[in-house]
Computed example of a mutant assay.
Amino acid sequence: MGLKPLHDRVIVRRTEEQETTAGGIIIPDSAKEKPQGGEILAAGPECKTLKAGNSVLFAKYAGTEFSMDGDELLIMREDDILGVFE
């Protein structure tokens, strides 16, 4: 990755969206919400509890979206992370 986050910021890739419900109903693109979970790709030097590879849950409107090498990514503060999946 060519971008290194500063201070307490992390770079997150959102998890894939679900295409169908458990009952088999296909969800159209217009009805989908962006997932609130993802994987941390890089963490700044001041991040105390998070590291690359953690699966996390973050606030709905957290972070700033940007595109890099064809991937849609988010950069956000460590405080915007609500929890870490174990």
Rank of each mutant, 00 (worst) to 15 (best):
M1R: 12
M1T: 02
G2M: 08
L3T: 06
L3G: 00
L6H: 11
H7D: 13
D8Q: 01
D8P: 00
D8W: 08
R9N: 12
I11G: 09
V12I: 12
R14E: 10
T15K: 05
E16S: 10
E17I: 05
E17V: 08
Q18V: 02
E19H: 02
T20H: 07
T21S: 14
T21F: 13
A22N: 08
G23V: 10
G23T: 13
G24M: 04
G24T: 02
G24Y: 05
I26Q: 11
I26E: 11
I27L: 13
P28E: 11
D29A: 06
D29Y: 06
D29E: 13
A31M: 15
A31N: 12
K32Y: 07
K32W: 09
K34Q: 14
K34S: 14
P35Q: 11
P35M: 13
P35G: 12
P35F: 01
Q36T: 09
Q36R: 13
G37M: 14
G37K: 14
G37Y: 09
E39W: 04
E39S: 05
E39T: 03
E39N: 04
E39G: 01
I40K: 10
A43S: 12
P45R: 03
P45L: 05
P45T: 01
E46H: 13
E46N: 15
T49W: 10
T49M: 09
T49F: 12
A52P: 03
A52L: 04
A52I: 01
G53C: 04
G53S: 05
S55D: 03
S55P: 02
V56L: 12
V56Q: 11
V56P: 01
V56A: 08
F58E: 05
F58D: 00
A59V: 03
K60Q: 11
K60P: 00
K60M: 06
Y61Q: 07
Y61D: 05
A62G: 00
A62P: 06
G63R: 00
G63T: 09
T64N: 09
F66E: 07
S67D: 13
S67T: 11
S67P: 03
M68C: 04
M68S: 02
D69I: 05
D69R: 01
D71C: 04
D71P: 00
E72Y: 05
E72P: 01
L73G: 07
L73D: 10
L74K: 02
L74E: 07
I75K: 07
I75R: 08
M76E: 09
M76Y: 14
R77E: 10
R77H: 12
E78G: 01
D79E: 14
D79N: 12
D80F: 15
D80S: 10
I81D: 02
L82W: 14
V84S: 00
V84H: 01
V84G: 02
F85D: 11
F85W: 15
F85I: 10
